[in-house]
């Protein structure tokens, strides 16, 4: 029995090789989204400082919506911010914000300075919900359908082109 233990490394290695072999047949360039067409991960985030209400996965049911991952520390978030404000102003689609890894108070201060495009905001200070969403970096935007399933993921800032050509058409489609 003790002798067999010495074969454990090669047994584990055999498993790794099988995975690598399967992995080779897959295409890493395909849309890198987690949970496309799966329900959004369960979560219940507290509000950020100065807000009454947080954000939970329950809030995503019933209506097509966007979930936007941002942080006051994120350079590119400032780029997409004016577009998010436009969406909010024209009431096109509700945007739920997940404030990712912000020190206490900084997210709220940023929104006060720049304007708040979000319907509800959850504070993901330790970044665990972002892990569940498979977030690679901020900003990232998920499109959620009426049943609370993730239907699309966009990585990077939303520019006018991205909004017009990708995100808005998907939102329209899901509303049908």
């Amino acid at each position: 029995m003790k002798r067999l233990g010495f074969y454990l490394p090669i047994a584990i290695f055999a498993g790794v090789v099988i995975y690598l072999a399967v992995g080779l047949t897959l295409d890493p360039h395909k849309l890198p989204s987690t949970l496309i067409d799966k329900p959004a991960p369960e979560f219940d985030l507290p509000p950020i400082e100065g807000f009454e209400q947080g954000l939970s996965s329950q809030d995503l049911n019933g209506e097509v919506s966007l979930v936007n991952i941002w942080g006051s520390w994120c350079v590119s978030c400032i780029i997409e911010h004016p577009i998010l404000m436009e969406i909010k102003k024209n009431n096109i689609v509700p945007i739920y914000g997940i404030d990712w890894k912000d020190p206490p108070g900084e997210g709220a201060a940023w929104l006060k300075k720049e304007g708040n495009p979000y319907t509800l905001i959850g504070d993901d200070a330790d970044g665990r919900v972002a892990i569940d969403f498979g977030v690679t970096g901020a900003p990232e935007t998920f499109i959620i359908d009426k049943e609370g399933r993730i239907r699309y993921k966009y990585i990077g800032p939303i520019t006018p082109e991205v909004w017009n050509e990708i995100i808005f058409p998907v939102v329209e489609e899901l509303r049908k």
């Binding site: 995975y19 690598l20 987690t34 949970l35 890894k101 330790d126 972002a130 498979g134 977030v135």
Partner: peptide
């Protein structure tokens, strides 16, 4: 590093594991 690959191989889901995982 390999978990995303394993998940992809098993279920076809693409996920990524970021810095938060490694830090904790």
């Amino acid at each position: 590093t390999f978990y995303p690959l394993f998940v992809d191989a098993l279920t076809g889901n693409k996920i990524s594991v970021g810095a938060p995982y490694f830090n904790i």
